[in-house]
Design a protein around this nucleic acid. Structure first.
Lengths: 235, 235
DNA sequence: TTAATAGTGTCTATAAGACAATATTCA
DNA sequence: TGAATATTGTCTTATAGACACTATTAA
């Protein structure tokens, strides 16, 4: 969150809600604020937009600094611009992105900690509201898109994919109906291999046809381009 | 579109895509640019964000200045922030809203003209891309929400509502199936009256239960509040 | 053989689309 | 009565959910 002291200007920040799956739940990384306002409380990772830099580039570099990882999905969420939202630090408009990671990082950067979305600490600014909104969009989106695949590694089983869906929507899904629905997708490719070392019947391993994924459920935000045709915030 | 001269700053503008129905087609108002860059070409109405002002407030005042009207629907569309998009006028991030009008204004403000969306002139900046995206969102949104009602006056017939849908999606719809689907909606209220003066059988007049509309398909962006729960740009 | 998970088959309810048929008004 | 639009009814097809059933592996 950028501060700008002189009267009469609006500053612009880019923040990112970064989701990853862990222990069948959604987790997000937060950073501890080292300055007033809200010093010592947790906030979304982000920072001022550097002149000459793209919005998604700014989100990606925040992501890299926070997690050391490159996201498998990145999408603009919303712009918040209420003049009072900065806690007396001037008028700050934040363009917020959300991202999906296909793995959780082993070790955290300094000042960064991961929290489950249903056990968040008290947050700085309006970041609790932003996170609520990001979770709501992810929950709605998983129902009509293939966004859950962004949380999967290169190859995965249908049970793992279903558990990702369950973690996001928050309730169990019928394995039979889930399998039928997803096996009919041309983007889901049977690798012919099976997961080894399971205690019982070994499940098939699938991978994703990413060329179809892009066309079907929204693009990874590219550094120089416009929003995808499938973008629409009011579902 | 705001310009800011000193090196190293990002300026913030708010623009609005304003839709209205006329002659069974979608129309938008554009303003003629009176300054470089793109002097003399057409652009989306908008302007710099005044410090201390809300984003939707800024969109609403642009709308008022352009059309003299208050919209029946207003929603944040997307934020564009490519550094090259301003045509050499510094780094300008535009937060773009889109709005629906329930009527077309009788007379236009100075420098404003209305165009059908399938017959647009050459546009300044990246505004052609923005308009394409706004039309795409409206087209997708009309399929799963009740957004078409925002284009209707206080009372309307099912045929008028269907023609609004047809103008937006761009192809004819089956009157029988349309009527069945929309009459089952609890938000659509039969006024008991009929339209007078039609050459043939007079159709029923309906009105909308706006309290249900808010809950069902996204709120009118309110000056002081967050995005609606149903916001989601990737449909 | 048993336990546990992987995966298939079937039935039902719901909704959408095609399209025939009936209803109501004015000229 | 006829023309034109409003409104209702019926049939087909696609899909989602509930849930019973079969398959495959390790211990």
């Amino acid at each position: 969150m950028a501060a700008q002291d002189f009267y009469g200007s609006v500053s612009l920040a880019v923040s990112t809600v970064i989701f990853a799956l862990k222990d069948r739940a959604l987790w997000v990384p937060l950073v501890r604020r080292e300055r007033e306002p809200y010093k010592g409380t947790w906030a979304l990772p982000g920072g001022p937009l550097s002149p000459g830099r793209n919005l998604p580039d700014s989100a990606l570099s925040t992501l890299e600094a926070t997690t050391g990882l490159t996201p498998s999905y990145l999408e603009q969420l919303y712009a918040w611009g209420n003049p009072e939202r900065s806690g007396g630090d001037g008028h700050v408009v934040s363009v917020v992105y959300w991202a999906a990671l296909s793995s959780t990082p082993d070790q955290e950067a300094k000042g960064v900690a991961w929290f489950p979305v249903d056990g968040l600490p008290s947050l700085a600014f309006d970041h609790a509201e932003i996170l609520d909104y990001a979770v709501a969009r992810l929950r709605r989106k998983v129902a009509y898109s293939r966004i859950a695949h962004s949380f999967m590694p290169e190859t995965f089983t249908l049970t793992e994919l279903r558990e990702a869906h369950e973690a996001i929507v928050g309730h169990p899904l019928d394995p039979a109906n889930f399998a039928r629905q997803f096996r009919s997708s041309p983007a889901l490719i049977d690798t012919g291999r099976h997961r080894e070392g399971t205690p019982f019947r070994p499940p098939r391993l699938y991978r994703y046809d990413s060329s179809l994924t892009y066309a079907d459920d929204g693009a990874l935000a590219r550094a120089s381009s416009a929003p995808d045709d499938t973008q629409d915030p009011t579902c």
